[in-house]
Computed example of a mutant assay.
Amino acid sequence: MLRSDDLQVFVLTAELGSLSAAARQLELSPAVASAALKRLEAQLGCRLLVRSTRSLRLTGEGELYLPHARSALQSLVEGQQLLAGGKATISGTLQLSAPSDFGRNVLLPWLDEFQLQHPLLSLRLLLADRNADLFRQPVDIALRYGQPEDSSLVAVPVAAANRRVLCASPGYLAANGSPRTLADLVHHNCLRFMLAGRVHERWCFLDDRHRELEQLVSGDRVSDDADVVRRWALAGRGVVYKSWLDIAQDVQSGRLVVLLPELLGEPTPLNLICAHRAHLGERVRLLREHLVERCQRLIQLAPFAH
């Protein structure tokens, strides 16, 4: 039978990249920690880690097994909390990936509130616009716009009604005028985002009759960091086509102005992504509820919500 303390040694060793560091954190001797790993590998019938005097890495089997080991340990913690009558009291480490712009400018204060409500919880936050590899990276869940391309991943909605909006700063509009039609964008400097090597330069909308409209845009700036694109817009460098959640607070404060509000922007649903439904434990459930409530407040302020 697998031992939970052996699983703990394996998971912590994989996360820290060092058996000796894991042993110190668990207050074990290196010999005891090494024996735990060997015992686990013997029971599973495969090597999980390749170890040498200078390095340590997961084997292919170890990469496959790691998320299951994490999930098993978390399930044991949640079961213990349930028996203790403290299901709402969550602890441990929640590893989360989020988009750069949404993560820095919207999510951070929400996570601060969440940790104040759950002081025993630790967070590990990775910010990147590229899709997180939930099977290889030390991530339990990811917040991402749109549906995952990998159909094996589990997607749970957080803000299904979110859409893109066209906007620019008051300073840019004072100097360059406001577009009155979609075709007018050819006369404006459009700030574009690049993901996976592809520049997002075909901006799509629906008119009041729900007919699809598309405009090819151009400009002097492209970035693979969505937060950089937003900062350019705030600095008056051009027109931007962004997720409402990313710029809602900028619009409310007057730092950005919504353009052509009669057009309906592309749907950009925010989803919580995980590799296995087993990862949707109590910590993730409570975090999702926390995020859904706050996203709904912002969506209610959107021009497309009226």
Results as ranks from 00 to 15, higher is better:
210 H>L: 13
138 P>T: 04
57 R>G: 03
142 A>W: 03
165 V>N: 04
47 R>A: 13
169 S>L: 01
305 A>R: 05
68 H>R: 15
133 D>N: 14
44 L>H: 06
224 D>M: 07
33 A>C: 06
166 L>N: 03
247 I>V: 15
303 P>V: 07
107 L>M: 07
193 F>W: 10
171 G>D: 14
303 P>G: 08
176 N>A: 08
188 H>V: 02
243 S>W: 02
300 Q>F: 04
305 A>I: 02
249 Q>S: 13
68 H>N: 12
253 S>Y: 02
148 P>C: 07
168 A>Y: 01
141 I>A: 12
219 G>N: 04
211 R>Y: 08
150 D>V: 06
94 L>A: 05
214 E>S: 14
10 F>H: 04
255 R>Y: 04
301 L>E: 14
143 L>T: 06
31 A>M: 09
45 G>C: 07
116 L>Q: 15
50 V>E: 15
112 D>A: 14
115 Q>F: 00
219 G>Y: 06
119 P>D: 11
243 S>H: 04
143 L>Y: 09
283 R>L: 02
117 Q>M: 12
195 L>I: 10
4 S>D: 15
90 I>L: 09
262 E>V: 01
286 L>Q: 15
153 L>W: 02
69 A>V: 03
145 Y>Q: 09
23 A>G: 11
17 G>C: 08
264 L>C: 10
78 E>R: 07
233 A>M: 05
275 A>V: 12
249 Q>V: 07
47 R>Q: 15
135 F>S: 14
212 E>L: 11
282 E>M: 13
203 W>F: 06
53 T>G: 07
82 L>F: 12
23 A>Y: 01
69 A>S: 05
264 L>S: 12
12 L>C: 05
30 P>I: 00
32 V>A: 15
266 E>A: 12
23 A>W: 01
154 V>H: 06
213 L>F: 00
170 P>Q: 07
109 P>A: 04
1 M>G: 14
183 A>S: 14
151 S>W: 10
148 P>T: 03
55 S>K: 08
5 D>Y: 03
276 H>I: 09
224 D>R: 12
116 L>Y: 06
156 V>L: 14
196 A>T: 13
304 F>L: 08
167 C>W: 02
35 A>G: 02
132 A>P: 03
170 P>K: 04
95 Q>V: 01
89 T>K: 15
276 H>M: 11
250 D>W: 09
238 G>M: 00
89 T>R: 15
